[in-house]
Design a protein around this nucleic acid. Structure first.
Lengths: 207, 207
DNA sequence: TGACATACCAGACAAATGTCTGCTATCGTC
DNA sequence: GACGATAGCAGACATTTGTCTGGTATGTCA
């Protein structure tokens, strides 16, 4: 039974566990044992417990496959809504185009995604076909890019509040500013992220 | 023991399992039992097995927490490399800025992410501070947006091959076309996705 | 040298978890 | 009504998996 320099194997164990967690397939202690050809379960467990003690991993005691990354939950998928219907703001799972993974920082928020249609925001780097990730919220501050529902149609625009009036500004000279009344316009949320898929193969999966 | 209309409870079980999988925390059968207050494990298992038979879930028999989504592994995180060093193309985990989750479609590929520095690609909707997701590959076809290493510096440009010469085109009139020799230039990969974080809070987590 | 820590092994035990067999009740259909 | 399909229950059992106790070997440091 050869002995490895201190910490060296543990580093590899750590990366192995991470990989597995990123795949969404938490390993058992015996998985780790097998992956590193340890002849005893305790060897694997020793490394894992040490990693927990060092704060590099977290665990749910007694639970099968209970090792996780501390503070870092797995990325969450948010639904890409094909259309946003007026009135019902609840996630319509029916006309679902797919899912996009988002940063785990804001898994607590109510997020959804939307595919951009027109060219009215190209000046802000938002092009047709892009997907915007939206945090659902009823209001926003002036200057932010929002998704608003105007006459039953969802549009992405930059919000400006001038003289207590709502203005929806495009970022493309070919389009005009919309100045809806408070009753015509409903702010669905604020755009927090834009993503463009340059490669067809990387487009979100439909399922 | 009340009985629910056919399929109704199962639908909810399905969504519960999905949620858990998206969180990276595969449920046990007894987790499902508890979540729906079934008085027997078999009830939960019945639904789960049916979902597998219907092809809506997949499972690894006998394994603890073995239920997964078919075809759809959990999203993967790819590293955002702070800098790309010449020569060594291996992922330098050291100067790591964080991780971004990517679509599960291409988990098999060798991906990394890079933060964009200059304004040379604004015409293509790629702005400073954006993060590009790159598929590592030594070559690319003309017209694709690539990450190239020119004189030890990584740049994002549109690749054009004219008269068997490599040209790196910016998408901003303020910048000039680079025409490196084959020896000065190394194609690191092809940009498959662009993402911009409009909200500071949504920026990738450093850890 | 001896005390101590680390890496690893061996085997047993216990808790968590998947699987099976058999049962009741409700609904729709022939 | 008989039949089959579905939803659900009850309890036992088997496997997987986490936990524990005790051991050997090697290195560091006083």
């Amino acid at each position: 039974m050869p002995k490895t320099p201190p910490g060296q194997t543990r580093e590899r164990v750590y990366h192995y566990v991470r990989e597995r967690l990123f795949e969404g397939r938490p390993p058992t202690i015996r998985d780790v044992q097998r992956a590193f050809s340890f002849r005893a379960v305790e060897t694997a467990r020793g490394h894992l417990e040490t990693l927990v003690r060092e704060g590099r991993l977290a665990k749910r005691t007694g639970e099968a496959r209970g090792f996780t990354l501390p503070e870092l939950p797995a990325p969450k998928l948010v639904p890409i809504l094909g259309r946003v219907q007026a009135g019902a703001l609840s996630t319509a799972v029916q006309d679902l185009e797919g899912y996009v993974p988002v940063e785990s920082t804001h898994i607590s928020h109510d997020l959804f995604a939307l595919r951009v249609n027109g060219k009215s925001m190209t000046g802000a780097g938002i092009y047709p076909g892009d997907i915007v990730v939206v945090r659902r919220q009823p209001t926003a501050t002036s200057g932010e890019i929002v998704v608003a529902l105007v006459e039953d149609e969802a549009t992405v625009k930059r919000l400006r509040i001038r003289n207590r009036r709502i203005e929806l500004h495009p970022e493309n000279p070919d389009f005009e500013v919309i100045t809806p009344s408070r009753f015509q316009c409903l702010i669905l949320g604020k755009v927090i992220e834009v993503r463009r898929f340059l490669d067809k193969a990387s487009a979100p999966l439909r399922y």
